[in-house]
Nucleic acid binder design. Structure first.
Length: 545
RNA sequence: GCCCCUGUAGCGCAAUGGAUAGCGCACUAGCCUCCGGAGCUAGUGGUACAGGUUCGACUCCUGUCAGGGGCACCA
């Protein structure tokens, strides 16, 4: 929302710097930030501080000279209608103060255009593929997958909203070792059900759901050799339903089995061979990933002739680029962090740039109940599943909680807190603000007429609220830059807080009709932004609670 | 041994390298004749340690200490 004026002010600064002969290497380094405190104006630049060393002069002196030039230029510019003051403050910051009309106009755009006013086109239609969850179809989704699902889906929502052409993809590991073990696990359980005693190996799938699959396979008279595929299909249906119930919908389920059939793996190998990035040693075929900064070279075909996991994955990533995606985002669990270098090496071997692939490591979530961590063990089939969390706290709270910490940080998720309906539970705090506004608007609908005068909104809390609304797109841009949606959860809590403070101090439905109309418009704007933010998080926007 | 994540108030956390480090819980004292008190106001209290980079460091770098996770010709 602020972008237009922000760019114009940066241009103004750039022109002044050029006039003063100081531009030098600083063309890209001019930044115009939102000050931490509104006492420091509406926008702030630290350019004088940055120039200080280069010019060997104190920052205040540089700032003072620059401000004189800025004021002269401003007087001749159309910007003078919006800017009231430019001044040097603190250690040498240059702060810009805007006229209140600027903010009233922005609010008016939001309430008249609604959600569309909040959209931007920073993505410019660029094609981005975001691959996430991609859990092996060997069991229900765990909380680790749940967090990846929440983060990936929300990030995809945000990127789409700011103008990217986004595809959500799930890489389906539907063949290979794990599927074989899955089939063997079902086979053993089936025999057990028929009265045969046998040893059940430790690395087989231990969960009780294997018995269910065995019974179903028996009913359908599935052949031994097909048990793995049957079980994978069976589990995949469960996974798909879990994701749907969590509000996550994939555009593409990319099958590893299909990839293998397509011949793309061999094609990828021959291209790597041409480029001399493959070699044989100890009976195995190696990929020379050290050429691109990996710690060691990696085996892609084992000495027994079978492929490692990396083999199809190399072809898969090359295929992503071949499908026209210019930006790949992968969400992986922390157990894959050592894998980043080799897959980046692979895309570089094909001539892509390292930064065309963003790998986001989604740290684990620990589930707590009343402050006590719940122990889990994947091996024994005892882990907290997405399904259990959904059943217990619902999709709204689950999504918010999985998103509310930096994705790269560990997350503690207390089921009891997520169920609480109080300020301890941030999802309720934000939704409550929305419901409260809806309640007022139900009793007194806003009618936007020509006589709507927002300039009567003079209170500190009112202006703070409008300014907070305008930070929405800054927030989304931070989410994009960090590939992390969690900042949006922080923003929505701050916006809700600004609203609750305003609400407590000032009556919306006032004696003064003009003021009432303006305040109704203000809360309508807050409702629009809250609803939009919640929607991007994939959380409902209740009108009543 | 190597790699990743984390260390901020009693607890849980926040702060795109920026100005006086914010919020919730808990504790203390207040606010409902009033649009939803699931809310608000005030008080108490903090950057693990040692260096470095920078005009400026919770933020970046190095080391130490502490906690969590990972280091296959598994996937």
């Amino acid at each position: 929302m602020n972008k237009d004026i922000q760019e114009e002010l940066i241009d103004l600064v750039r022109h002044c710097l050029t006039d003063l002969g100081w531009l030098a290497d600083f063309v890209e380094k001019i930044s115009l930030d939102l000050p931490t405190d509104n006492r420091f104006g509406d926008f702030s630049t630290n350019i004088a501080l940055k120039l200080s060393k280069l010019l060997k002069r104190p920052p205040q002196a540089i700032a003072a000279e620059l401000v004189v030039s800025l004021q002269q230029k401003l007087a001749k510019s159309e910007l003078k209608a919006l800017v009231t003051q430019i001044k040097v403050e603190g250690v040498g910051f240059i702060n810009f103060y805007l006229k209140e009309n600027y903010f009233y106009d922005k609010l008016k755009v939001i309430i008249t255009q609604g959600k569309t006013a909040l959209k931007s086109n920073v993505g410019a239609g660029r094609k981005v593929l975001i691959e996430f969850v991609s859990a092996n179809p060997t069991g229900s989704l765990s909380v680790a997958h749940a967090r990846q699902a929440a983060v990936g889906d929300c990030l995809a929502n945000i990127l789409f909203f700011i103008g990217f052409d986004v595809q959500r993809e799930y890489y389906l590991n539907d063949e290979g070792n794990q599927i074989n073990i899955l089939g063997a696990s079902v086979d053993l359980r089936l025999k057990e059900l028929k009265g045969q005693k046998n040893e059940f190996p430790e690395n087989y799938y231990q969960g009780d759901y294997i018995y269910d699959i065995a019974r179903e396979a028996d009913k359908q008279k599935i052949k031994d050799i097909d048990l793995g595929n049957f079980a994978a299909d069976y589990i995949l249906k469960i996974i798909k339903q879990e994701l749907i119930d969590f509000g996550v919908n994939f555009d593409c389920w990319y099958s590893q089995k299909q990839l293998a059939k397509s011949g793309k793996i061999e094609q990828a190998f021959s291209r790597l061979k041409e480029k001399k990035f493959l070699y044989e040693q100890d009976g195995a075929l190696w990929f020379k990933s050290t050429a691109f900064g990996d710690d060691k070279d990696r085996v892609i075909i084992k000495s027994d002739g079978s492929q490692t996991y990396l083999a199809p994955d190399i072809a898969y990533h090359e295929d992503k680029f071949n499908r026209g995606f210019g930006w790949l985002i992968n969400l992986w669990g922390p157990d894959h962090h050592g894998y980043i270098n080799r897959i980046k090496a692979a895309i570089e071997a094909f001539g892509h740039k390292s930064d065309e692939l963003s790998v986001i490591i989604v740290q684990l979530a620990t589930i707590f109940r009343d402050g006590q961590p719940i122990q889990m063990s994947t091996r024994r089939g005892q882990y907290i599943t997405l399904r259990e969390v959904l059943d217990e706290v619902g999709a709204d709270a689950a999504r918010f909680f999985f998103l509310m910490r930096r994705t790269s940080s560990h997350l503690d998720f207390d089921l009891e807190v997520a169920k609480k309906q109080s300020a301890e539970n941030p999802v309720f705090y934000v939704q409550y603000a929305h419901a409260r506004i809806c309640s007022i608007l139900r009793s007194s609908p806003l009618e936007i007429g020509d006589d709507l005068n927002l300039a009567v909104l003079k209170e500190k809390e009112e202006l703070a609220l409008i300014k907070k609304l305008l930070e929405f797109d800054t927030t989304l841009n931070i989410c994009k830059a960090t590939c992390d949606p969690y900042m949006l959860t922080v923003y929505l809590q701050e916006l809700a807080e600004c609203f609750h403070k305003f609400y407590d101090l000032h009556r919306v439905l006032d004696q003064d009709e003009a003021l009432t109309a303006a305040r109704l418009a203000l809360i309508k704007g807050v409702k629009i932004v809250l609803a939009c933010g919640l929607e991007l998080l994939g959380i409902t926007q209740p009108e009543k609670m």
